[in-house]
Nucleic acid binder design. Structure first.
Lengths: 142, 142
DNA sequence: GTAACTGCAAAATATTTGCATCCTT
DNA sequence: AAGGATGCAAATATTTTGCAGTTAC
């Protein structure tokens, strides 16, 4: 498992408190985080603006990827595989639990290739499945 | 093809200028619209708030569905098939053209079923493919 | 006439930008 | 020391809410 330090070094980013904390939060969270989650979980130790800028930097470097959602809140999740700078390979399925609201990266489930109508050339696909996650199901039927 | 009037009547909504105009905009647009697009294309004839409320009503009634995106802008598109109130069946693939930025509903391409890890129960899936659309490809190679 | 819809004002929330200061390398 | 990162202030943008006036049925 990578440490926050290793990730920052590998991407040639300055090691700062904010970046380390935010990265650690991602590492210990098995799922995606919204901007608001990060603010909450760091006790507002960092300026709101710093969080915005940090996330933006992480996306540019390919450390995290954005997950499309239907409400106006972009989610961010760690890229598990090698996302080169500006060229993300987050081609796994994202699962949003409608019970606990957590978003989970199903790294082992690849987005299937669909056959598009003539003339359409795909370059990237994303897939979001919602339903009940493993944890919530276990709690429901003990 | 349905008219804006028919759609409103079928859903037991009052016929108002705003709703008609916004619906017509959807009908004549072959693709998805963001809140901002609607404001622009109606010359701000309606209050910003009215647009918000109209879109919300349309989603509730199943007239339009929301398309998840990766930037903080929810897109809306007409539901082609019967979306019952509160129970959308927009299980077709959405295509975002990285050239013209249009979002197109590929009504004939169904979101494939993926096999999830044990414990995960899916209720809904969405899929977004980006790339070059039919129109832009044609323009590129005349 | 009544319920539903709209517009306006204002509040709440979210995002971006500029600049001075501080920290990392 | 130099460049980059942060915090603060403030500008901008987005979304929500309450209420009074208007409109559809």
């Amino acid at each position: 498992m990578d440490t926050s330090l290793e990730i920052l070094k590998r991407n040639r980013l300055s090691i700062t408190e904010g970046r380390k904390k935010i990265l650690e939060l991602f590492l210990e969270t098995d799922g995606a985080l919204a901007h608001a989650d990060i603010e909450k979980n760091t006790d507002a130790a960092f300026d709101r603006v710093t969080v915005y800028r940090t996330l933006q930097t992480f996306v540019e470097k390919g450390i995290v990827h954005q997950i499309p959602t239907t409400d106006n809140a972009v989610l961010y999740a760690l890229c598990k595989h090698d996302c080169a700078q500006g060229h993300h390979h987050d081609n796994h399925v994202h699962f949003i639990c409608s019970h606990c609201q957590k978003t989970i990266c199903l790294d082992d489930v690849t987005v299937p290739i669909v056959k598009l109508p003539t003339g359409f050339t795909p370059t990237q696909s994303a897939m979001i499945v919602s339903g009940i996650c493993n944890d919530c199901k276990k709690k429901a039927t003990p």
